[in-house]
């Protein structure tokens, strides 16, 4: 049976995967390195545009899809996402899968024209990273949906308690109490209640078992 320590170390366990050299782009998305982020557009934007245009979409749809995927990667990178394949394969496969879902929603997936040999190679190479990212996105949307159900006061307290300062440390309860002009004891109690509410909201949703 896993102990509390193994649960605590769970976050660090993802760091054993072999990084692809394209991890630099993931790092760029994490740190908002605008030069490298533009390189992502220059190098792969056309590929995604062609993919979407061949399949009932236009350049604007492609750019929207591309932006959506890069935002997901930005979020996932904060959690320590490790890219184990080329960014090209990864972006192509992830965008294709998301675009298929989009077409399915519109009832037009039957016209998809993307299955060729390079497509299959990309899918195989990037399977692990793509599936991990999709699971992360699903988890993120689930958690964010529950967070959005909280009262504005609760959201503010949780936001402050999870905010990291420039030195990478979390704000202390004392600092949070000062910022909100409330007592230390009240803030701790209120934060506890708000977090308990957040967990309760998640638990009530059957989807929490898939997290």
């Amino acid at each position: 049976m896993p102990t509390a320590k193994t649960y605590l170390n769970g976050i660090k366990q993802t760091s054993h995967k072999v990084q692809h050299p394209d991890q630099k782009y993931i790092e760029a998305l994490r740190t908002n390195d605008m030069i490298l982020v533009e390189d992502i557009y220059k190098n792969y934007g056309q590929m995604i545009t062609d993919l979407v245009k061949k399949n009932n979409g236009n350049a604007q749809d492609a750019m929207d899809l591309f932006q959506e995927v890069l935002i997901i990667l930005h979020r996932y990178s904060q959690e320590g996402f490790t890219l184990t394949c080329s960014l090209k394969s990864f972006l192509y496969t992830l965008c294709k899968r998301r675009w298929i879902n989009e077409l399915k929603k519109k009832g037009r997936a039957e016209t998809l024209k993307v299955a060729d040999i390079s497509d299959l190679n990309f899918a195989e190479e990037s399977k692990e990273s793509v599936e991990g990212t999709e699971m992360y996105d699903q988890r993120f949307r689930f958690c964010k949906e529950k967070f959005n159900l909280l009262s504005p006061g609760c959201k503010e307290i949780i936001q402050l308690s999870w905010r990291k300062q420039e030195d990478g440390k979390y704000c202390s309860w004392k600092e949070i109490a000062e910022e909100l002009d409330m007592s230390y004891a009240y803030i701790r109690k209120k934060a506890s209640q708000c977090k308990a509410r957040l967990i309760e909201l998640a638990r009530k949703d059957p989807g929490f078992k898939n997290l």
């Binding site: 979020r75 904060q78 992360y136 988890r139 936001q159 999870w162 905010r163 990291k164 957040l198």
Partner: peptide, 12 residues
């Protein structure tokens, strides 16, 4: 822990 790990970078 899962909710904190998932939300803290975005919300914080």
């Amino acid at each position: 822990k899962t909710m904190r790990r998932t939300l803290s970078p975005n919300i914080g």
